[in-house]
Design a protein around this nucleic acid. Structure first.
Lengths: 240, 240
DNA sequence: CGTAGGATTGACCTCGATCAAGATTAGTGG
DNA sequence: CCACTAATCTTGATCGAGGTCAATCCTACG
């Protein structure tokens, strides 16, 4: 098992210019607006909660290392995992409207986040058109992603849902400079099931089928994509 | 059958201050930023397309009267209806990221929209903190709504999906000063099914059951909510 | 080792998709 | 005003995919 990439603990002042996730994130500290957003880096242990549902909202959080799941309600029965946040992703966008978090964010592994006080973010956005544009892009992207997932969930085939989910993870891993074929899932089968609207046993059944058909190599949370083309086919609706 | 409220055709310059949807919308023309966003009112006939998927994005559209559905792909097979826009709603938020529309917007009835050129919107946002805040609220609300729908789609029970959908429509009707109990759906059964990930026959079956159990009175697209409490129960997972 | 939580497997059953008519409505033209 | 048509909606029967239940296996961790 390869060692987890663990970033060194940083000082309180995030140096976005030096951050390796810069191209994915909201770079709040720019040359011309030095330290306009003063945030601090927070460590969150695996399983710990970053913020709760219905908690008052004050800051956005940018994932610096590790990963999170966001849940509405209490999974797996009444609630759902609405998404997974990887390094560079923003957490808390859904709380801007009502100033209350509409989901709970739980670390899937030992993680670090940059806290971005939202009133300071707003000031920075007004001062920098570039930053504003980037922020709107990130929110818009979140909406696009949600629509894609909705499309997936409306679709009945469990195989298609899981194939598309894995392809999405693969793409996001690649964006972050990791392998697009050798995935190490930070989430449990139950999380995946809750996210895709499937029972945990169904997730297992489907993974077994995908493995048998030669698309994947599955070893617990280590998943190798053997035949990405075939997997794409499954995601598009071709029977397994 | 009550008559449809039909707004008079307005001049090219939207007078948001006079618009009756002001409290729901993005009021782009404010006292202190007179005509900062110059938009025009466009009429869209029932069934016509406001913008296509993959079309380049230049403007947001605020629904002024009527209603729209937004589709990704080609429903009902490969695509889905991702949402329905009512007066005051913004269309095109998902295009900000890539400057390409990620869905197609189709008018469900004769409708009017206010066109808001996005570069001008951005300028106005930077100039007015209040406007910026409102805009971020609207985007955030869209995300919250999407998450709620995702939660619904993950849920297996067809009855719960439809009950929640109707309750949502009821709430939105009330926000717009209409009756929360006597709904007149602008969309077909097929649209509802595509939106909720259900077949058209299933929609019918469920509506029939809900009518038989005394929750609803159903007459084609006129639906009266008789027992809102019971409907809430169904939406929460109580068997019909 | 030994235990506990996560993952897999298989048998069975339920609920929604599918298929096939039929009913109702709105729209058209004689 | 009344056929006639096409689109929409409804209804019922059957089928199959995924949920459910139950048991086992595996891995991690003490």
């Amino acid at each position: 098992m390869p060692s987890m990439t663990h970033l060194p603990v940083l000082p309180d002042e995030p140096e976005c210019l030096l951050c390796e996730r810069r191209h994915l994130c909201l770079p709040v500290v720019r040359d011309d607006i030095a330290a306009s957003v003063v945030g601090s880096v927070r460590a969150v242990a695996a399983g710990d909660t970053l913020f709760l549902e219905d908690e008052t909202f004050a800051s956005l959080y940018a994932v610096r290392s590790g990963s999170f799941k966001t849940c509405v309600g209490v999974p797996p029965q009444r609630g759902r995992v609405t998404g997974f946040a990887l390094p560079g992703d923003l957490l808390g966008l859904d709380a801007i409207d009502s100033r209350l978090h509409h989901c709970q964010a739980i670390a899937l592994q030992d993680s670090e986040v940059c806290e971005l006080p939202f009133d300071q973010v707003e000031q920075a956005l007004a001062a920098s058109g570039m930053l504003q544009r980037r922020f709107h892009q990130l929110m818009s992207r979140e909406i696009v992603r949600d629509h894609a997932l909705m499309r997936l969930l409306g679709q009945r085939q469990a195989g298609a849902r899981i194939a598309a989910f894995l392809l999405g993870l693969s793409e996001r891993a690649q964006e972050r400079g990791q392998s697009g074929t050798e995935l190490r899932l930070p989430m449990s089968r139950e999380d995946i099931g809750s996210h895709l609207g499937l029972r945990i046993e169904t997730v297992s059944h489907v993974l077994t089928r995908l493995r048998a058909s030669g698309c994947l190599r599955v070893r617990l949370r280590e998943i190798d994509i053997i035949d990405k083309l075939a997997l794409r086919g499954v995601a598009e609706g071709v029977a397994v």
